[in-house]
Computed example of a mutant assay.
Amino acid sequence: MLLVRSLLFNLAFYLMTAAIMIAGLPTLASRRGVLWTARTWARATLVLLRAICGIRVEFRGLAHIPPGGVLVAAKHQSALETIALVAVLDNFAYILKRELLWLPLFGWFLSRSEMVAIDRSKGSRALVLMNEEAARAMRDGRRLIIFPEGTRRPAGAAPAYKFGVAHLYDRLGVPCLPVALNTGLFWPRNRLARHPGTAIIEFLPPIPPGLPRAAFFQEVQDRIEAASDALLPPGFPRPAPQGAARGPATAG
Rank of each mutant, 00 (worst) to 15 (best):
W102P: 10
F109D: 12
I146S: 06
F163K: 05
D90F: 04
R120E: 14
L103R: 15
S121W: 06
G107L: 13
T82L: 11
F92C: 05
S121H: 13
L185N: 03
N91S: 06
L181C: 03
Y169M: 03
L168P: 06
L105H: 06
A160L: 11
V179W: 09
L177P: 00
A180P: 00
R125V: 13
I83H: 01
M130V: 13
N182R: 07
A135L: 11
A79N: 13
G68I: 13
A135E: 12
G150P: 09
L80V: 08
V174H: 05
V116N: 02
E81C: 08
P104I: 14
R120M: 07
N91R: 09
K162M: 09
A87S: 14
Q77E: 15
L144M: 08
A93T: 14
A84W: 02
A134Y: 02
V72R: 11
F92R: 04
A134W: 05
K162C: 02
G184S: 04
I83L: 08
F186C: 07
R136K: 15
L71E: 02
M130Q: 14
D140E: 14
A157M: 05
A155L: 10
F92A: 12
E132G: 02
G173S: 05
Y169D: 00
R142V: 11
V72H: 09
E81W: 08
R143G: 02
F109C: 12
F106I: 13
L100T: 11
R153W: 07
A79E: 09
G141W: 13
A160Q: 13
G184A: 02
G141C: 08
V86Y: 04
I146V: 15
P175G: 14
R120V: 15
F92N: 06
D170P: 00
F163R: 04
L181G: 01
R171I: 07
A74P: 04
R143I: 08
S78G: 01
W187H: 10
V128Y: 05
W187P: 03
A73Y: 05
F92Y: 07
N131S: 11
R125D: 07
T82V: 06
K162Q: 12
V72M: 12
S113Q: 06
N91V: 00
P175C: 15
L127E: 11
A158W: 15
I146E: 06
V165G: 07
V88C: 00
S113G: 03
D170R: 12
P159V: 04
R143C: 12
S78I: 03
Y161W: 08
F163D: 01
G156L: 08
Y161H: 03
L85H: 00
H167R: 07
L85R: 06
R136I: 03
F147R: 05
V179L: 09
A180N: 01
G173A: 06
A117Q: 09
